[in-house]
Amino acid sequence: MRITVIEHEAEAGLGYLGEWLRPACDVVRPYLGEEIPARPADGLIVLGGASAAWEDERSPWLPATRDLLRLAVEESTPILAICLGAQLLTLACGGMVERGANGLEVGAREVVALPAAGDDRLLAGVGTAVAVQYHQDAITRLPNGAVPLMTGAQYPNQGYRLGAAAWAVQFHPEATPEIFASWTADDGLDAAEELNAEVKAAEGALVATWRPVAEAFAEVIRTSVRA
């Protein structure tokens, strides 16, 4: 089992997922000149980043990433698309992403499972949980056929499933407290110390909630490979 991982910047790596899924991940770093593959491996993870999902001039590999996501959906290759990755999946499949009207969502924030998550292969059992947030763009219209799975107070579209095996989450299940602190430091947020402390305090809950989700994603890939 191999998972293609698209990493948009060094500061937004696999984090926890690197521990939970290792050694199955083949990381592609287009910001270092590595080419986006024409096809994914057995599974595909697309991580977050500072670019907006439509900023192709800033990150010229985004069109190829959207093409890869679209192909993976068409071929039912398991996908986990995170934050920017979720927004790229949304655009690739006909949804809409815009600058968020409710400002920056940042810190350890509550996300809530919707009824359809009850029997979802990844998110069943999550219920109400804490997740790391760091985004100001928002998914404002889901792709046709998408099944909403998670919501939140500041932005409603926090997670959905598309097709047989594609999942998009606006939050960051991969983000460790150390990764989050590097983001607040880079951006010079006024409340950085308080935000860092709340994410650190939530560390146990983050691992308890999102590690089983990552392991369930790996099992989806294994099942797909065996089929």
Rank of each mutant, 00 (worst) to 15 (best):
M1P: 12
I3Y: 12
T4R: 10
I6K: 00
I6T: 00
H8C: 05
A10L: 15
E11L: 10
E11W: 10
A12S: 15
G13V: 08
L14Y: 06
L14V: 11
L14F: 06
G15K: 09
Y16C: 10
L17W: 14
G18S: 03
G18M: 02
G18R: 04
C25K: 06
D26L: 09
Y31D: 08
E34C: 01
E34H: 04
A38G: 13
A38L: 12
A41C: 14
A41V: 15
L44N: 02
G48Q: 00
A53V: 05
A53H: 06
A53R: 02
W54D: 11
E55M: 11
P63M: 01
T65L: 04
L68Y: 08
V73P: 13
V73C: 07
E74M: 08
P78T: 05
P78G: 04
L80M: 02
A81L: 03
I82L: 09
L84V: 00
G85Y: 06
A86T: 00
Q87P: 13
Q87D: 00
L88P: 09
L88S: 04
A92N: 02
C93M: 11
G94N: 05
G95V: 02
V97M: 02
V97F: 05
V97D: 01
V97G: 00
E98G: 09
V106W: 12
G107D: 04
G107K: 09
V111A: 08
V111Y: 04
V112Y: 15
A113Q: 05
A113I: 09
L114D: 08
P115D: 00
D119P: 12
L123K: 05
V126T: 09
T128F: 11
T128H: 12
V132I: 09
Q133I: 01
Q133V: 07
A138E: 10
I139P: 01
I139Y: 04
L142I: 02
G145T: 06
A146L: 05
A146F: 07
V147S: 10
P148T: 01
P148F: 04
L149R: 02
M150E: 08
T151K: 10
T151F: 08
Q154I: 15
P156W: 00
N157A: 13
Q158G: 10
Q158R: 07
R161M: 07
R161N: 02
R161G: 06
A164W: 15
A166G: 01
A166W: 06
A168Y: 05
A168S: 06
Q170T: 07
Q170M: 02
Q170D: 06
Q170H: 01
F171W: 12
H172S: 06
P173T: 09
E174Y: 03
E174F: 03
E174R: 01
E174D: 05
A175N: 07
P177L: 04
I179R: 09
G188A: 00
L189E: 11
L189D: 13
D190Q: 14
A191P: 14
A191K: 15
A191D: 15
A192K: 00
A192N: 02
E193F: 11
E193D: 14
E194G: 11
N196D: 13
V199F: 09
A205W: 05
L206C: 01
L206I: 08
A208W: 14
A208S: 15
T209Q: 07
A214K: 03
A214V: 12
A214F: 07
E215I: 12
E219R: 13
V220K: 09
I221W: 02
R222N: 13
S224V: 15
A227S: 13
